[in-house]
Deep mutational scan, measured.
Amino acid sequence: MSIQHFRVALIPFFAAFCLPVFAHPETLVKVKDAEDQLGARVGYIELDLNSGKILESFRPEERFPMMSTFKVLLCGAVLSRVDAGQEQLGRRIHYSQNDLVEYSPVTEKHLTDGMTVRELCSAAITMSDNTAANLLLTTIGGPKELTAFLHNMGDHVTRLDRWEPELNEAIPNDERDTTMPAAMATTLRKLLTGELLTLASRQQLIDWMEADKVAGPLLRSALPAGWFIADKSGAGERGSRGIIAALGPDGKPSRIVVIYTTGSQATMDERNRQIAEIGASLIKHW
């Protein structure tokens, strides 16, 4: 067993022997301040990774656009098919120029040779490549099948209805392509620590998230040296922004954090800054 596999296998073990965790309302004060600064709703939840206990939450059962955070769930569904012998990570998928959609920095470079399922998941999570996500959605049967996968996990809230990039439209009061912070946090925890996926697939999923290259201005910008984070960000229309993450000190994750916002007129930089400040408060009061 590799060191990384050992780390993920012992996530519940280490967490069980940690000192009790206590909620700190100071972080919620910052979440509410972010709402004021952005002029928009902000949803927040913080779960203990081992027990699933909610440590703090704000608007945990209000719907927010998922945006690209759905790509972690998508690759979880792909990995479940791999575990069941219905898919192979090494299978190569070929596609054409007509398949390319807006923001496809990886797939646009491989029109000639195609990409493997493993490479597509890596591109979808680490670079948020939209064509990679659409190609992977095709392998599982489309958005409705991802929703069905989530329902089978016990998540009857999260739903995907459309493809990239239309799913980022974020129309107010439109339930399409949305989740709730509580539902997303619980589902992410199941994917990373539950028995739904094999140990190898859980490790692969967290490795992809740990290698995320496009979430630097968010929670990662607030992390002290030595902290662990595996995350996936999302951005959408109407001032929408979000991030889902597993993080913790001492090089291992111990909490799940989900943050979503929508309806702001603020710039992307300002949305990023507010999420980073929430992260800084979380870490300060850990």
Rank of each mutant, 00 (worst) to 15 (best):
P105K: 12
F228A: 06
A84V: 13
L137V: 11
G114L: 04
P172I: 06
A211F: 15
D155A: 01
D161M: 06
P217T: 13
S57D: 07
S128H: 03
K232Y: 00
R241M: 04
V214H: 15
D129I: 01
T131V: 15
A170F: 06
L135N: 04
I54T: 15
D212M: 03
Q88I: 15
A34N: 03
E175S: 13
D36N: 15
M115N: 03
G142F: 01
E102Q: 06
L219Y: 02
L196P: 10
D33V: 10
E175R: 11
A211Q: 14
W227T: 01
L192V: 06
A84W: 15
N152S: 12
R271C: 12
L28A: 13
M153N: 08
T112Y: 14
T267Q: 12
I283L: 12
N152M: 13
H151V: 08
N130G: 05
A133V: 03
R81P: 00
I54K: 15
K284Y: 11
A183E: 08
Q97E: 11
I244F: 04
G90F: 14
S221T: 15
L120Y: 01
G76D: 02
G85P: 01
T138H: 15
N272A: 14
A123C: 09
E26T: 14
A211M: 15
I140K: 03
E102K: 08
S264F: 05
S80M: 09
N152H: 13
F70M: 08
S51F: 06
L135I: 11
M115R: 05
T178H: 02
Q37L: 10
T261I: 13
E145I: 09
K213H: 05
K190C: 15
S96G: 11
A133K: 00
L282Y: 03
I125G: 02
G154E: 13
Q203E: 05
L197E: 04
M127G: 13
S201N: 10
A132P: 01
L150A: 14
A133C: 14
L196I: 11
L192D: 02
C75D: 01
L150S: 14
R238V: 08
M66H: 07
W227N: 00
H94N: 06
P65T: 04
A276D: 07
T179N: 01
R176K: 06
D33W: 06
L197S: 05
G52V: 04
A132H: 01
A222I: 05
E166Q: 11
A148M: 07
S68M: 00
S221A: 15
Y95V: 06
G194R: 11
R63Q: 11
A132S: 11
S240L: 02
P224G: 12
N134Q: 03
S80E: 06
I93M: 06
G251V: 13
V106F: 15
P165Q: 06
D99M: 08
H24Y: 08
A230Q: 02
I54Q: 14
M153H: 07
E175C: 11
D155G: 02
M127E: 10
T193F: 10
P172A: 14
E61M: 11
R189Q: 15
E119K: 15
T126R: 10
E26D: 10
S281W: 07
Y260L: 13
R202P: 00
T107V: 10
L160R: 01
V214Y: 06
L205E: 01
P172G: 09
K232S: 01
V82Q: 13
V117Y: 04
G52E: 09
E35F: 00
G236W: 01
Q204K: 07
I45G: 04
S122P: 03
I275K: 02
T27Y: 02
I275L: 15
A84L: 13
P249V: 11
D269V: 08
W286Q: 04
C121W: 02
A77C: 07
E62T: 06
T267A: 08
H94W: 07
